[in-house]
């Protein structure tokens, strides 16, 4: 998260990457072990970089890489210091200009089916932002309200259609699809404001429901209100931090009130607005979410907003693999 605020918010870095590079953002947790052409490309390229020559094998290949489309490394570094990154980019451009490479456009390839994170056709994307809420008994510095994280909620086409009634009438009430409610509760009401945390399991969902009510309707437009609640609780897993050895995974929970509004264009059959907020009380800590000294209960907020379903916005939800979609992707 630091890189977003430091390196990639620097005007010089933004300019050079926008004008002189093809910028790619990748979750290498999956790419580095994919058994397909993309995984092979990434491993071959990364092994020429800052991790080359390792005497102790490690799994990670995190970092910043500049390369040709054929996978030849130009420069690499793993840092959040802007000046070092600018230096690396200039070094890469110098080498690129000396090489003056040309390449064929790569052909398509068969993806490793174990890591298929493809975007479902016609799905909606809600961008999620999570952040701690101010508290009466603590200053904003103590709460660190500037810390936040993002994720993306994918709603399949048929699930989105189920949110819109065939013959809407003002005052009509109905429930959201159970699978969608489960997905929101299990995978998107997870406290990852300060660091990673595992998703909830089915057995942790004590309660989850989302009711929709048609607020207004005419031949062109439909406005729907959402209201719901989710209660999630988990016992400790017994994990310890491998670095400190401390057992910090303790009983945790989330008690959320959900509100939202949908605006739907009945002429174009398109969602024009899908805002949703989960205002929650969270407690406990997990191994890597940095809550050891902030066990709560304390307020946390999750905001969801509709963004265009175009390729540049199709960064997958964090927990897409597994049971995100119960019937496969």
């Amino acid at each position: 998260m630091t890189g977003r605020a430091s390196v990639f918010s620097d005007d010089r870095v933004i300019k050079i990457l926008t004008e002189q590079f093809i910028p790619v953002a990748d979750n290498c947790t999956f790419t580095q072990i994919q058994r397909d052409a993309e995984g092979e490309f990434f491993r071959k390229m990364a092994e020429q970089g800052h991790y080359s020559g390792r005497t102790k094998p490690t799994g990670t290949r995190q970092g910043l890489y500049a390369c040709t489309s054929e996978g030849e490394l130009l420069a690499s570094i793993n840092t959040t210091r802007v000046e070092h990154v600018l230096s690396m980019l200039n070094k890469a451009l110098k080498k690129w200009n000396e090489m003056n490479p040309t390449a064929d456009v790569p052909a398509s390839y068969e993806k490793d089916r174990n890591f298929n994170r493809s975007f479902p056709e016609g799905a909606l994307i809600l961008r999620e932002t999570m952040r701690d809420i101010p508290r009466k008994d603590k200053s904003s510095d103590e709460v660190q309200i500037w810390k936040h994280n993002f994720d993306h909620l994918w709603i399949r086409k048929e699930e989105a259609q189920a949110l819109i009634p065939d013959n809407p009438k003002a005052g009509m009430e109905y429930e959201a699809p159970k699978e969608l409610v489960r997905r929101i509760a299990q995978y998107h009401l997870v406290d990852q404001v300060r660091g990673e945390a595992p998703p909830w399991h089915d057995k942790h969902i004590q309660k989850a429901g989302l009711t929709l009510r048609v607020e207004s309707v005419n031949e062109n437009a439909l406005k729907i209100r959402l209201e719901g609640h989710a209660l999630l609780e988990a016992d400790p897993t017994g994990q310890t931090n491998p670095y400190s050895g401390f057992k910090i995974d303790m009983k945790r929970g989330m008690d959320a009130t959900i509100k939202g509004v949908i605006r739907y264009n009945r002429k174009t059959n398109a969602f024009e607005q899908f805002d949703m907020v989960a205002a929650a009380s969270r407690w406990g800590a997990t191994t890597y979410n940095f809550r050891q000294n902030d066990l709560g209960p304390a307020p946390i907020g999750f905001a969801f907003e509709l963004i265009p379903s175009e390729p540049r916005n199709q960064t997958p939800p964090k927990f897409l693999l597994g049971t995100y979609f119960r019937n496969g992707n």
Partner: peptide, 15 residues
């Protein structure tokens, strides 16, 4: 143009 790859354990543009 050369590629620039921001690789992280986690989605750099997401969570």
């Amino acid at each position: 143009k050369p590629m620039f790859i921001w690789a992280m354990n986690g989605d750099p543009l997401g969570c």
